[in-house]
C-alpha cells in the first residue's frame, strides 16, 4: 500500500470506528426506527390501504424507508462526527497531517455513507424476508441509492463543517431534512395528493430520489427516470465539488 492509501484508509477507518463504538445509538436506534415505521405503516395502515398503483402498500413504502434510512444515517453521522471533532479540537490531528483536502473530504463523507449502507442493507434483508419486496431494475437501483447516500453524506459534511453548536445540526435535521424526506413521498404517491401539494411535491428534490429508488425496487414511477438520474448525478457532483472547494479553502476548519 502506498503512503496516501494508508493515510486515506486510516482517516476512513477512524470515521467508521466512531459509529461502531456507539452502535446502539448509531445502528440500533435507526434500525428500530425503521422497523417501527414498517410495522405502523405496513401492518396497521397496510391493512386499510392494501394497494397503491397496483402495488401492495407495504412494498410501496419500503423502498422509501430504505432510502430514508440511508439518507438520514449518512447525514447525521457526518454532521455529528465533524462537529464533535471540531468541538473537542480532535480534528486538528487530521488537519495537521499530510492528508489532502480531497482525502479528508472523502474519508469524512464515506464514514456516514458506510453507516447508511449498513442500516439500509439490514432493512433490505429484513424486508426481502418478511415482505414481497422485489428488485426490478437493479441497474437503476444501485446507482440511485448510492448517489442518494453519497449526496446526503456530503450534505452532512457541509452542515457539520458550517455548524458551530449542536443545535445547528439538530436544526438542519429536524427542520430541513425530515420535512423534505417526509413530504417527498416516502409513505404515499404524490399523485394522490390534493393541489397545491401535488405540484409542490414536484419541487422537492427528495421526491425524485424516492421515485428513482422505488422504481429500482418495484418498477413503479411517476417521473422520467433517465432525467431524474441525470439530475441526481449532477446534484451530487455539484455538492461534492462545493465541499471540496470549502475543504481546499479551509472553510471553518482552518482558522
Amino acid at each position: 500500500m502506498s503512503t496516501w492509501q494508508i493515510r486515506f484508509l486510516s482517516l476512513w477507518r477512524r470515521e467508521i470506528s466512531r459509529f461502531m463504538k456507539i452502535k446502539k445509538q448509531t445502528l440500533g436506534g435507526p434500525l428500530l426506527e425503521t422497523f417501527l415505521y414498517i410495522s405502523v405503516f405496513g401492518a396497521a395502515l397496510g391493512s386499510r390501504i392494501k394497494e397503491l398503483h397496483g402495488i401492495e402498500y407495504i412494498v410501496f413504502v419500503i423502498p422509501g424507508l430504505i432510502m430514508m434510512a440511508f439518507a438520514t444515517n449518512a447525514f447525521s453521522n457526518n454532521s455529528s462526527s465533524i462537529l464533535q471533532q471540531k468541538f473537542l479540537g480532535a480534528i486538528h490531528d487530521q488537519l495537521s497531517s499530510p492528508a489532502s483536502p480531497r482525502e479528508l473530504l472523502l474519508a469524512f463523507s464515506l464514514g456516514g455513507f458506510v453507516r447508511g449502507l449498513i442500516v439500509a442493507t439490514l432493512t433490505f434483508i429484513v424486508a426481502i424476508v418478511l415482505t414481497n419486496l422485489t428488485v426490478d431494475h437493479v441497474l437503476v437501483l444501485l446507482p440511485s441509492i448510492f448517489l442518494v447516500g453519497f449526496f446526503f453524506a456530503n450534505l452532512g459534511v457541509l452542515i457539520g463543517v458550517r455548524a458551530e453548536q449542536f443545535d445547528d445540526v439538530a436544526f438542519a435535521q429536524t427542520f430541513i431534512l425530515q420535512p423534505l424526506i417526509f413530504l417527498g413521498g416516502v409513505f404515499y404517491s404524490a399523485a394522490l395528493l390534493p393541489e397545491p401539494f401535488e405540484t409542490l411535491t414536484k419541487f422537492n428534490p427528495v421526491y425524485y430520489m424516492i421515485s428513482l429508488v422505488r422504481y429500482g425496487f418495484v418498477g413503479f414511477t411517476e417521473v422520467n427516470i433517465p432525467l431524474a438520474l441525470a439530475a441526481l448525478t449532477a446534484a451530487t457532483a455539484a455538492l461534492f465539488l462545493l465541499n471540496l472547494r470549502l475543504f481546499q479553502r479551509g472553510y471553518k476548519l482552518r482558522s
Binding site: R7, S10, R14, P98
Partner: peptide
Amino acid sequence: EFHGGYFGMR
C-alpha cells in the same frame, strides 16, 4: 495508531 496512519506508517 490512527495518528500513525494519517502519516502513512505501516
